[in-house]
Design a protein around this nucleic acid. Structure first.
Length: 896
RNA sequence: GGGAGCAUAGCUCAGCUGGUUUAGAGCAUCUGCCUUACAAGCAGAGGGUCCGCGGUUCGAACCCGUGUGCUCCCACCA
């Protein structure tokens, strides 16, 4: 068969993915093997694959494929998240483009549109994961709003309500005026913004002057109910208890005192607006002050709470004006009253919505909350498991972050003023009383048991739905129906899951809450290891964003480079636990690696029909440890040991989740050790036959290399595995053999050979001997047996026409010293003795300086007394090596 | 404001229990090669004040202190 010049991934990748699916390799059923369970962090159902997903899912696939090849029953569960806010926003946007407003629709009509949208676009992202090669068990695809899942969420809500952990209350919440919903604290991102500090004076009612306050939010002035100063602030002590007049609305409000106020900030006087600021709200409650709301759900001015003030025409004219427009207007109007003292530039933090980016309003609102202190208090393992590494975090530094958040946890606002999501199972009677129940029928029964006079059709369900994360936190359990059908065989087998791979950015949103849920609902940890990925940034370290346009099109990259190269590129640049700086050049490196593998395949295939009789069949059988007799035996023996050594190293790295390093190690094993050294060593001369035993052994090595690499680059490895020899089985599920030992003496012999070859090539280069010009080589050594078996390799690798042994210096040659052995290169070329001399002198000085430092160490009594014996032995070896080299160089200098 | 982490070659990073020559890798750079698997390649080379200062130790990139510079997380001083 003719193999193409370079590797062409596209068709090959599609072919193998189809094949794997047709063989059902990725679908898992409980059996006697140990399970290896991973649940995908469910992407938004309407999302598209981006670099973050690529990193995350490549890592999961590597772990899962490796487990599958190591005797585990690997199960990787795919699925999507309904992503309440994000999806609803998209649906609203889509409807607007069709000229439909959400407010014109009933809940049911809206949800119908949303489900249509979900059916049409939902799951695109899952198809994209197939392109990447992800070995997910598609039969288990889940969605956080599947009917069973929905029921499970409701069940948990009811349970927690009955336990007094979920409650309903009027609290200050983070309000997103764009999506018009409450948000949890975690969904608020604080950003530094340039704003202004306005100094506004409030006249005292007794005409004795005024108090000036500094505020960043003059638009809330009409909701002011007090001025607060620090009781120890002497500037104001006389004014405490007096009254001032709020500008424009002319409300009379008291001057109060509270330690909370920082006398150093601004003027030391703080205006209190309990309806629009969390701290003001607390102060307001403490001092029994009313909260006067002046902004509606969209952040526009409203006079609803101002009737007692008999609002003037001016005040009424503000109605419906947006908060930021209002800010300017009110500043102008107060300015007209000469009550703006000054305006300063100010850098402040402002909360924004994680989803919409809108500036958050603190707003008093009736919402549903979870009492987190109480909840965690009932399940102390939530915190302990991470602290004691029962659940292991990678990198471990995130343990601190986790513990700190847990120790300072605040109540979780779980209700959202949205329709797309699980509707809160609270049912209201016309009189406003409510019960919490799994269904309207159950709610009716509950009302009846409370002797409420009520008909079922009068019952109204809470309009709001639950925070998306209130369903996501059940994910590792409910994908196996662990809540809706507890104790089922799948759940018993697969849960707790093994490894979770996710972004650091959702440690609180998701990871922490899954751990809580795990202990609270099943009294078990949900997973054993958590691998946190960093963020994918561009080559300059900037976040990827639509505005910057620095977010590459992942599918385009896969088309250009192939999925294997893409996986390689992102993994090679991905140090464990750090952000990754993504650069397309690493994908090129991946593509080049593909070609390297492909060309190695081509070379080996060339030999297939050129096999000669084996001189020695013993080399295909273990062990490698016998003293090698021939050139090819040496190479085969060496690589076999090297392979076992690297397998052992890779195994360790994988256990420590050092995936990037493992890949680098395999890459260098294949490129350097296998291609650059081993294949060159066994390569037969032009049109010469290859020893069939060597050939067979090489096939085995190549297959094992492909197996080692497969989890990282599944497609090309499967392809090569099949092209090497006709196979009935597939690499994808081929089980790896247990680790084998390796012989360090053999490895050292290989290293010495490499070192000698490199040194001789370097000498050739430095003396400008053309690659085609042959040399004559003489070796001066005490251990001729070291070189006898590798003479042929040496000849070929340094283009020597002969090798001889000598006991003394050979005249008119270039001398190369490696360890204690000397090599004399004889060539036709005229030698540039001056340059050679200079080189040697440089080397001599270097060695002498080095010897000096070693001797200094060895003559230090305290070193000899305290250091470990092996360290001292090493120093002595350094000494004798250096002395030998110095002697060699000195002799060579004389020789020139 | 509180906490965590980082600083090693031009870039991205290893360096795990203090001792493996005078600190490694990949990419980039330079030199020579179109050698019959591969120029998307081969063979070589150069490149370092291990952020500064102090300390512990026979011995420090590594441990301790301190300074500087970055990064991240948490926290609504209006």
């Amino acid at each position: 068969m003719e193999l193409s010049k370079n590797y062409i991934p596209n068709e090959i990748e599609a072919k193998w993915y189809e094949h794997w699916l047709s063989k059902d390799y990725f679908s898992s059923k409980p059996d006697g093997r140990e399970p290896y369970t991973v649940v995908i962090p469910p992407p938004n159902v309407t999302g598209v694959l981006h670099m973050g997903h690529c990193l995350n899912n490549t890592i999961q696939d590597i772990l899962v494929r490796r487990a599958r090849m190591h005797g585990k029953n690997a199960c990787w569960v795919p699925g999507t998240d309904h992503a309440s806010i994000a999806t609803e926003a998209k649906v609203v946007h889509m409807l607007r483009e069709r000229g439909i407003t959400k407010s014109s629709l009933s809940r049911d009509e809206f949800l119908q549109y949303a489900w249509e949208w979900k059916e049409k676009y939902g799951g695109i992202i899952l198809q994209q994961l197939k392109k990447l090669g992800c070995s997910l068990d598609w039969d288990r695809t889940s969605f956080t709003m599947d009917p069973e899942y929905y029921k499970a969420v409701i069940e948990i809500f009811v349970k927690l309500y009955n336990e007094g952990i979920i409650y309903r209350g009027l609290r200050m919440v983070n309000w997103d005026p764009v999506s018009k919903t409450a948000l949890s604290d975690e969904e608020v991102i604080f950003k530094e913004v340039d704003s202004k500090l306005y100094y506004v004076s409030y006249p005292l009612t007794d005409g004795s002057g005024s108090i000036t306050v500094a505020t960043t939010r003059p638009e809330t002035i009409l909701g002011d109910v007090a001025i607060c100063v620090n009781p120890t602030d002497e500037r104001y002590t006389a004014l405490i208890g007096k009254q001032v007049i709020v500008p424009i609305i002319n409300r009379k409000i008291p001057v109060i005192a509270d330690e909370y106020v920082d006398a150093e900030f601004g003027t030391g006087a703080l205006k209190i607006t309990p309806a629009h600021d969390k701290n003001d709200n607390e102060l307001g409650r403490k001092h029994n002050l009313k909260a006067l709301n002046t902004l509606d759900a969209e952040g526009k001015f409203t006079t609803e709470d101002l009737s007692e003030d008999n609002p003037s025409a001016q005040v009424l004219s503000y109605t419906g004006i947006d908060r930021f427009v209002l800010r300017k207007k009110i500043v102008e109007d107060i300015s007209a009253l000469n009550q703006i003292q000054k305006i300063e530039e100010y850098k402040g933090q402002v909360g924004t919505s994680e989803r919409t980016g809108a500036i958050i309003e603190s707003r008093l609102s009736l919402q549903w909350f979870m009492d987190m202190k109480k909840f965690i208090g009932q399940n102390p393992k939530t915190i302990e498991s991470v602290e004691t590494d029962k659940i292991k975090f990678h990198p471990s530094k995130l343990k601190n972050t986790y513990s700190y958040w847990m120790d300072n946890i605040k109540d979780w606002c779980i209700s959202r003023q949205l329709w797309w999501g699980q509707q809160i199972p609270a049912y209201f009677a016309p009189d406003g009383s409510f019960v919490v129940a799994a269904s309207k029928e159950e709610a009716f029964e509950k009302f009846k048991s409370q002797n409420a006079k009520i008909r079922i059709e009068e019952i109204r369900q809470d309009e709001d739905c639950l925070d998306t994360w209130f369903s996501s936190w059940l994910w590792p359990m409910e994908v196996f129906k662990g809540i809706s059908n507890p104790g089922n065989p799948d759940f018993n087998y697969y849960y707790p899951t093994t490894t979770l791979v996710t972004g650091q950015d959702i440690i609180f949103f998701w990871v922490a809450r899954m751990i809580m849920a795990g202990y609270a609902f099943k009294d078990q940890q949900p997973f054993t290891d958590v691998y946190f990925t960093g963020m994918v940034r561009d080559a300059q370290g900037r976040k990827m964003s639509k505005q910057l346009g620095n977010s590459p099109d992942l599918l385009g990259l896969i088309d250009n480079y192939g999925a294997d190269a893409t996986r390689f590129g992102i993994m090679i640049a991905s140090p464990a636990g750090n952000d990754i700086l993504f650069d397309e050049s690493s994908l090129e490196q991946g593509r080049n690696f593909n070609n390297k593998l492909w060309n190695a395949l081509k070379l080996i295939k060339m030999w297939e029909g050129r096999q000669g009789v084996s001189r020695q069949s013993s080399i295909v059988s273990e062990p490698f440890h016998d003293s090698p007799l021939t050139t090819h035996d040496f190479a085969v023996n060496w690589f076999g040991n090297r392979l076992n050594q690297v397998k052992t190293e890779v195994d360790e790295m994988m256990q420590q989740f050092r995936l990037s390093e493992a890949l680098k190690t395999i890459y260098s094993l294949i490129w350097d050790d296998f291609c650059s050294w081993y294949l060159e060593w066994i390569k037969p001369g032009f049109e010469q036959p290859i020893d069939s035993a060597v050939y067979q052994k090489t096939l085995v090595y190549f297959e094992e290399l492909m197996q080692l690499l497969h989890p990282f680059m599944p497609f090309i490895t499967e392809e090569i595995y099949h092209l090497l020899q006709d196979k009935k089985d597939d690499l994808c599920i081929k089980q790896v053999v247990p680790l084998q030992s390796f012989d360090n003496a053999v490895l050292e012999a290989g290293e010495l050979l490499k070192q000698v070859i490199s040194a001789l090539r370097d000498a050739r280069n430095k003396n400008q001997i053309k690659p085609k010009d042959p040399i004559k080589l003489f070796i001066q050594t005490e251990t001729e047996t070291n070189y006898r078996p590798i003479e042929n390799i040496l000849l070929k690798q340094v283009n020597a026409e002969s090798i001889g042994y000598t006991t003394e210096t050979v005249a008119n040659t270039i001398v190369v010293a490696v360890e204690k052995d000397k090599f004399f290169i004889k060539t036709e070329k005229e030698l540039d003795t001056a340059t050679l001399k200079a080189e040697l002198i440089k080397d001599l000085e270097h060695q002498q300086k080095f010897l000096e430092s070693v001797l200094k160490k060895l003559s230090n009594e305290r070193f000899v007394q305290n250091a470990k014996p092996e360290v001292i032995a090493l120093e002595r070896k350094k000494q004798s090596d250096a002395e030998a080299r110095i002697k060699t160089i000195e002799e060579s200098l004389k020789n020139l």
